[in-house]
Amino acid sequence: MNKEQYQKLVKKHTPKENRLINSITAFVFGGLFGVLAEALMQILRKVFDLTILDATTWMMIIFIFLACLLTALGVFDKLVTFFKSSIIIPITGFAHSVTSAALDYKQDGLIQGIGSNCFKMAGSVILYGVISAFILVIIGVLIYG
């Protein structure tokens, strides 16, 4: 059996994920998370008499807390296989990446393990966010004065 045939065989036996169903799942649950976020914000606003900005921030903190807790309990990865990207694209994915990296490297100690590795994946979000925001502010200033 040459390489090509082997590749074909591998391809044939790789379980095919249904992309259509994946996409629909991501859309529906992503949308539901959006609705949940808005509903939670409105509830917080009514119950604690907060401004929209404060209620939104509390809502995000609650989502972050839940994501960290579920990651630490080992549930989050299972949820990803079910909810697909709908749980990664919200702020929960950011919290998950920090917690899971920190947990994975816990055995290497507080500094060389958790400290050096907790931003392994979330670092790229902060890095490219800051760089692109900085460049765009400069561009905006140059254009609009």
């Binding site: 807790l69 080992g74 979330a122």
Partner: peptide, 20 residues
Amino acid sequence: AGITATIIFAFIMTLIFKPK
């Protein structure tokens, strides 16, 4: 708020829980 909450909760969870 987002970054701080993430760091605080992630650190606390890491100290409490073991990797699964």
